[in-house]
Structures are given as C-alpha cells and as structure tokens.
Simulated assay, not measured.
Amino acid sequence: MQRKPYAVSMPSSREQRRAEMRAATKQPFTPSAAAMSTRPLTPNGHLHTEAFCLMWYACECGHRERIWNSRDGVTPFGFQCPSCKEPKLRHVNWNLDQYAPKHVPAPGQRVWIDLTRDRALEIARRTVNQVAKGNVPVGTDLNRIADAVYNEGRAPDLVVYGYVEAV
C-alpha cells in the first residue's frame, strides 16, 4: 500500500520517547518547591554544607583570611583579593571549614550575608556605569539587571563587619 504524499506520519513510540528526551535535556533544571522541601539536610540541619561556617580563603599573592558565612546559602568559590586586586582569592582547605552558628565576627572581619534588593540595584548601577561609561539604562533595563544580580534573594553579599559607610 502506498502512502499518500499529504498524509502525516505518526511517530513511533520510540521516536516520541527520543524526541521527548532531547527536549527534556534542553530545558534548564529548576527544582520545584516540592523537590526543594524533600531535599536532604546536612548533619547540622541546613540545606547547604557551608551554612554558618568559618571558611579559609587564600590568594596566590599570599593573602589569607577567614570569612564567616552567616546564612544558609552557597558562597562563591572565588572573588577579588583585597591585597592584589586580582580575582584570585579562592576558598581553600575545605576540610578546615568550621561550623560556627553562634560566631560573633571581630570588627573588620568579612562576612557573607543575604544580598538585599537595594544593594543588588546599587551593584547593577555600578556595573553598568563601569561597562557603559555612564549610559545607564532607564527603568526596566536596570531593574532587569538588578533582578539577575539579586537572584530572588539567594545571592550572597560580602560585607566587612563593624564597617559603616560614611554618607
């Protein structure tokens, strides 16, 4: 029996499964709220291993410091070194991370905190100023950049404990 040229062929179940698998691999993974609620907790009862830990960071230039994560959230593996200004300060010696939920930072110690929406807007504005040389997009463009920086409140911010910026 010959097929009619205008007839649409129906994919076999194998073809359908493979097409669905290809489509699924193209979708970015975003865990659902239900999956997040069933996520196993660390031995300390948090979602993230580095929650409330004192962590060592070191740079090739010789700078070393211990930074406290005051939140149940992830922290960057590396960022700009305050000594040499190169982006080479890395989280090192993970086995020396110390769980310290009641740690009180010393004045001048750097601490990871939750990023606020206002601070995300400030970072977005500063970044655009550096890249666009003062041509700051108005309205939604700058807000869209700030939203990406803010990441729905999951992004960390690094502050110096005991430091208040002069106005």
Rank of each mutant, 00 (worst) to 15 (best):
A7C: 12
V160W: 03
I67A: 00
P31M: 08
H63I: 04
S13C: 07
N129K: 09
H91K: 09
E86R: 12
K88L: 07
N44W: 04
A35N: 14
P107D: 14
P156W: 00
E20R: 10
R17M: 08
G134F: 08
Q98R: 06
W56G: 01
Q98I: 05
W94V: 05
M55Y: 08
V74G: 07
E50T: 01
A166L: 15
P40E: 02
A166P: 00
R117W: 02
R18H: 10
N93D: 12
I113R: 00
P137D: 00
G62C: 05
R39A: 09
F52R: 07
F29D: 11
N135K: 13
E15C: 10
P87R: 03
H46D: 05
T140M: 15
F77A: 10
V160Y: 02
G45V: 00
G45S: 10
R66A: 11
Y163F: 13
V136A: 04
C81M: 00
W94M: 12
W94L: 12
Q2F: 04
P137E: 02
T75A: 03
P40V: 04
E20K: 15
G162Q: 06
N93H: 14
M36N: 10
M21Q: 09
R64Y: 08
M10K: 12
G153T: 09
Y57N: 01
P28Q: 15
G108M: 09
C59K: 01
G78I: 01
F29W: 11
C59M: 04
N129P: 15
T38F: 07
I145W: 00
P156M: 07
Q16Y: 09
A120F: 03
V92A: 02
R154G: 15
Q16L: 15
Q109I: 08
G45A: 06
I113S: 05
A148S: 13
W94C: 10
F79Q: 04
S32H: 05
A58S: 12
T49H: 15
Y99Q: 11
I113C: 06
A146C: 05
M10E: 08
V138L: 14
Y6S: 07
W68P: 00
C84S: 04
